[in-house]
Simulated assay, not measured.
Amino acid sequence: MDAAFERAVLAQLLAIPPGRVSSYGVLAALAGYPRHARHVGKLLASAPEGAGWPWFRVVSGSGHIARPGTPQADYQRLLLEEDGIELGRNGRIDLRRYGWPADFMR
């Protein structure tokens, strides 16, 4: 991943408001790199601890937390709930309600 990609994705990540989520694919598209959702995931996974990135506001395009059943997924769920986001019993987030930006998430 090059520095321009990282800067563009980080700018979009930091723009996600509290109480909202976006998907890896939407973040990639907004950053100007459509079809680079996996690269967004890799970038967020490599975030330095304590960087303050709101990585937890990024979920799959179906509204699910990646890698369910892992300690990281449990932590992400906790952070999302603290952010005011409700997850369904199946662990899915209603992207029509919480998705950002709204026009991308419908």
Rank of each mutant, 00 (worst) to 15 (best):
R67N: 15
A37R: 06
E6N: 01
I16D: 11
V21A: 04
A45T: 04
P48N: 10
V40R: 03
R106P: 06
W53A: 10
A8V: 08
R89F: 01
A3K: 12
A15Q: 09
P71A: 09
W100P: 06
L43M: 14
T70K: 09
W100C: 09
G19C: 05
H39F: 04
W100N: 05
L30W: 14
P68K: 07
M105N: 10
G19N: 07
V26M: 07
G69F: 02
S62I: 01
Y98W: 14
L43V: 09
L87W: 09
P48D: 11
D94G: 02
S22N: 06
Q12Y: 08
A66Y: 03
A11C: 00
H39T: 03
L14D: 01
A3V: 06
G88W: 01
L43D: 07
V59S: 03
L13P: 01
G41R: 10
H64P: 00
S22H: 11
S62F: 04
R7A: 15
L79G: 04
F104C: 15
G19W: 13
A51M: 09
D103K: 03
Y33A: 10
A8G: 09
E6Y: 01
G88S: 10
G99M: 13
P17L: 12
L10T: 12
E81D: 09
W55K: 07
M1S: 11
P48Y: 02
A37G: 01
P54G: 11
V9M: 06
A102Y: 05
E82Y: 04
E82H: 10
H64Q: 13
H39M: 08
Y33K: 06
R67D: 15
A45F: 06
A102S: 15
A66N: 03
A3I: 08
